[in-house]
Design a protein around this nucleic acid. Structure first.
Length: 227
DNA sequence: TCATTAAATTGTT
DNA sequence: AACAATTTAATGA
């Protein structure tokens, strides 16, 4: 994907906006380029925009006092994020960092609120979007409390490919096994065993610093397996 | 472009 | 948690 317009066209809500608002959004969205390792937004910043990933991969994470990474979500192209912070006009609780050089569309908060006020289609999208997030959170809580490490890792990887939240996601994640560990609450050693087990099952390929899912449906079945 | 070195990541204990 | 092996990235000839 290479433009904000293209990104907007992939959404369910943009084509349904009233014409004047569509025009305003089209003109008001500004794309930014974030180099690999750069910040889309930082914890503590006042939220100004709702973000949509055009290209690349962005992770939402925190760095703890001792320097450890805690990743909450990976955001592939097509993902929109930050609505929670915009809605509450708060400061960011997390960092958003580009894992690869990425382009991100910034939609100013004023336009975001105007869409909520003026478009039922957008409001409905937002309701479904938040509902999907909640569903994913529930799946993660359940997975974390009930299942063995390998299934938690599988769930964590699946979360990256949620087609509802991230309609355009490809099958590659640039995350180290260490980061997957922090993301799924499993030690690096267990992650290592889990990903190699899944590779042996033909569900994914692992290479230096990245995981490529080759059988998404197979991974779903694997994650749903009763321990 | 290639070789050397440092840093990051992985595999193992 | 610690260690060794491997891979990548950076550096300079």
């Amino acid at each position: 994907m290479n433009s904000t317009d293209e990104l907007l066209q992939t959404t369910s809500w943009f084509p349904k906006l009233p014409a004047p608002l569509r025009e305003a959004v089209s003109n008001g969205v500004r794309p930014i380029v974030v180099e690999a390792g750069g910040y889309v937004c930082r914890r503590g910043d006042v939220s100004q925009c709702w973000f949509g990933v055009i290209d690349g991969l962005v992770k939402v994470c925190n760095t703890s006092i001792d320097g450890r990474l805690m990743t909450f979500a990976g955001l592939p192209p097509g993902a929109w994020f930050g609505e929670g912070t915009v809605l509450k006009a708060e400061r960011w609780h997390y960092d958003a960092i580009a894992l690869r050089t990425s382009r991100v569309a910034c939609l100013p908060a004023a336009l975001f609120f105007r869409m909520l006020d003026e478009s039922i289609a957008f409001t409905r999208f937002m309701l479904e979007h938040v509902n999907e997030r909640l569903g994913q959170l529930m799946a993660t809580v359940q997975s974390d409390r009930l299942t063995v490490p390998a299934l938690r890792v599988a769930n964590c990887l699946l979360a990256m490919f949620n087609s509802q939240l991230y309609p355009l996601g490809d099958a590659e994640i640039q995350l180290t096994q260490e980061e997957i560990g922090y993301l799924s609450g499993v030690t690096r050693q267990k992650v290592n065993i889990a990903v190699r087990q899944m590779e042996a099952l033909g569900l994914l390929n692992i290479s230096y610093g990245r995981v490529t899912v080759t059988d998404l449906n197979g991974l779903r079945l694997f994650a749903a397996r009763v321990p």
